[in-house]
């Protein structure tokens, strides 16, 4: 019973609310960087309500079932991942061996669902976008897993999220060590690509392939995709907070401290997004397999040395 509670209240409602808020912060900051005023606070929520009230069109040469179920698959993966994170964050005993591996798999599902949706919609641009998304997954997944591995090794080989949190509450944050700092940097790049934000938004390039895999989506299906995106905008920085900054706590003054940790990472992501041009897909791959992977490997080696 308590699992269902976690799933609905924390996994869905809280994450969705915080994700919408994060998306507003993102848009507002972007607007301020460009000397604009920016949208009002409720704008992301209004967008979702509006989209869900619109007609959902299904293109003639699409795979109907896959086309309609792809957004739901991605959404489900996102909700499950957030449930797992919240459960560990609230009670560190609420964990099982290898949940970090499950989490890595779950975090790939939203990207996979975008690919499925793109390929099944039968549109040329969507196909190009989906294939770019696939290449992007191939490129960022290696350094992502390596930097998670660095954290796992650093916290004495505990492949439990709860174990990592316990380790940090006793020995200080992972980011305080050399290996942790390097892994954090590598992870930040990967998260930027996972979120599909600007330097690595090749899959959705609005001005080039017209929002790529999502081009044929309208109405409620698009609303689910947007909600998933907004939730991921909360989820991935939250994952980083758990891995590197000792998780979030919500008692007394700690709530401010947790908010600060999260907003710090979000602000970093938004600033990177606003100060960089879009790279080509081959440049993105070279970047991830070159410098970022080397960074992550160095982090792993340092972690084995115990630094």
């Amino acid at each position: 019973m308590s699992y269902i509670f976690y799933l609905i209240v924390y996994g869905f409602l809280l994450t969705a609310a915080l994700g919408l808020l994060a998306s507003w912060v993102d848009r507002k900051l972007t607007a301020r960087v460009q000397y604009r005023v920016g949208p009002p606070l409720l704008q992301p929520l209004i967008d979702i309500i509006k989209l869900s009230g619109k007609e959902t069109l299904i293109p003639k040469d699409s795979q109907k079932m896959l086309f309609l179920s792809a957004p739901v698959i991605g959404f489900a993966g996102c909700v499950l991942a957030s449930t797992l994170l919240w459960m560990n964050n609230i009670n560190t005993q609420n964990t099982f061996i290898g949940d970090i591996i499950v989490l890595i798999y779950l975090l790939v599902i939203p990207s996979l669902s975008i690919m499925l949706g793109g390929f099944s919609s039968g549109n040329l641009y969507a196909g190009i976008g989906a294939s770019r998304e696939m290449k992007l997954i191939l490129s960022y997944e290696l350094p992502f897993i390596l930097s998670v591995l660095a954290v796992v090794i650093h916290s004495h080989f505990s492949i439990k999220l709860g174990g990592i949190l316990n380790f940090q509450s006793q020995n200080g944050f992972v980011i305080g060590s050399y290996s942790g700092a390097l892994a954090f940097l590598a992870m930040l790049m990967c998260v930027q690509a996972k979120l599909g934000l600007v330097p690595f938004d090749v899959a959705e390039a609005e001005t080039e392939i017209i929002s790529g895999p999502l081009i044929e989506y309208s109405g409620a299906a698009l609303a689910i995709y947007r909600l998933t995106k907004n939730m991921l905008l909360f989820l991935l920085p939250f994952f980083m907070v758990i891995l590197f900054l000792g998780g979030m706590r919500f008692d007394g003054i700690n709530i401010l401290y947790s908010a600060l940790k999260y907003t710090g990472i979000l602000a970093l992501i938004v600033v990177i997004r606003n100060t960089n041009p879009r790279v080509r897909i081959d440049q993105a791959m070279r970047f991830f397999w070159g410098p970022v992977t080397i960074l992550a490997v160095i982090a792993v080696i340092l972690a084995i040395k115990g630094l």
């Binding site: 604009r36 005023v37 949208p39 009002p40 967008d47 929002s211 081009i215």
Partner: peptide, 10 residues
């Protein structure tokens, strides 16, 4: 964008 208007590509 103050009024929520966005230019979309599709």
């Amino acid at each position: 964008e103050r009024f929520g208007m966005v230019l979309v590509g599709s």
